[in-house]
Amino acid sequence: VTHLCGAPVVMNMLLNARNQPLPRPVAMMTAGAAPPAAVIGGMEALGFQITHVYGLTEVYGPAVVCAWHNEWDELPDDERARLKARQGVTYPVLEGLMVADPDTLAPVPADGAAMGEIFMRGNIVMKGYLKNPAATEEAFAGGWFHSGDLAVMHPDGYIEIKDRSKDIIISGGENISTIEVEDVLYRHPAVLEAAVVAKPDPNWGETPCAFVTLKDGAAAEPGEIIAFCRERMARFKAPRHVVFGPLPKTSTGKIQKFVLRERAKNT
């Protein structure tokens, strides 16, 4: 095998099934969800050469790529993985890409902090949804395709997804990116898989609830996981609740967060 494609869940399976470097490099393209930097770093340590791409069915698949700069090869492993976890810049065939306010379409500052929605336009963007003019009109309000993904724009022009608009957690008026929390969870040595969703809270509106699958033979307590997160991010972003067990997935390996949101309500 010299080349393969797979979602981040496939990378995580490979990473946890092998602890020896590959006999030769293997080029791998990943997409389908935002890959945790810890998983990218682990895969590259084994000898996989990861290319991270991003797109949607509405733009005919991958339309954005984390184009690599040779000078980044000299950076520390953790920094290289963090850069490669970003979604990146446009493919040549995509005319326009911006991160902007979903209501005004005003681009957000390219500071890596201000969050907005990803918008696209160009010849590879669909004409509309079949026999659904209302959905088409909504998706193209303002002349750009609304992706539904929330992201930041970095000073170098690379975008980085922070969440789906339906997945963002609003706790006490503060936005919490579930992807950011999951990225920290994947750094824990006992964690095999993790997903974070909003749990209704009478005081804060919503709080993060983490669903975690532990590695075979590993052990951890909820308090340990929460403390691990609090040491590595703002305390209000850390999970308030941790539930252990297998994660529900689609046939292609995507985690079904709508199922977890229902579970969180009763946790």
Results as ranks from 00 to 15, higher is better:
V1Y: 05
A7H: 14
P8M: 03
P8W: 04
V9Y: 11
M13R: 15
M13N: 12
L14S: 02
R18A: 13
Q20Y: 09
P21W: 08
L22M: 09
A27H: 12
M29Y: 08
T30S: 10
T30V: 00
G32V: 02
A34I: 08
I40W: 04
G41K: 05
G42T: 04
G42N: 03
L46D: 07
F48V: 07
F48G: 02
Q49K: 15
I50G: 02
I50T: 01
V53C: 13
V53E: 02
V53N: 05
V59H: 04
G61I: 05
C66G: 10
W72R: 10
W72Y: 13
E74K: 15
L83Q: 11
L83Y: 10
Q87H: 04
Q87G: 00
G88P: 02
V89A: 04
V89R: 12
V93D: 12
E95Y: 10
V99K: 04
V99R: 08
D101Y: 07
D101R: 02
D103P: 01
A110E: 06
D111I: 02
G112H: 04
A113G: 01
M115Y: 00
R121D: 09
G122A: 04
N123K: 09
I124N: 05
I124R: 12
V125E: 01
K131M: 15
A134F: 06
E138W: 10
F140C: 03
A141D: 12
G143T: 07
S147V: 00
G148Y: 03
A151Y: 04
V152T: 10
V152Q: 00
V152W: 00
M153W: 02
H154W: 09
H154Y: 09
Y158Q: 14
I161H: 03
R164S: 01
R164H: 02
S165C: 07
K166Q: 12
D167L: 00
D167E: 11
S171E: 01
I179K: 01
I179Q: 05
V181R: 15
D183C: 03
Y186P: 00
A190D: 15
A190T: 14
V191Y: 11
V191C: 07
E193N: 14
A194K: 03
A195V: 01
A195M: 09
V196Y: 09
A198W: 03
K199R: 15
P202K: 14
G205W: 11
E206I: 00
E206H: 08
E206C: 06
A210W: 08
T213I: 06
A219N: 11
A219F: 10
P222A: 05
G223A: 12
I226M: 09
I226T: 06
A227C: 05
M233N: 06
A234T: 09
R235A: 11
K237Q: 13
P239K: 10
H241C: 07
V243M: 10
P246I: 08
K249E: 14
T250N: 08
T252W: 09
Q256D: 07
F258Y: 12
L260A: 10
L260M: 07
R261A: 08
R263F: 10
A264G: 12
T267S: 14
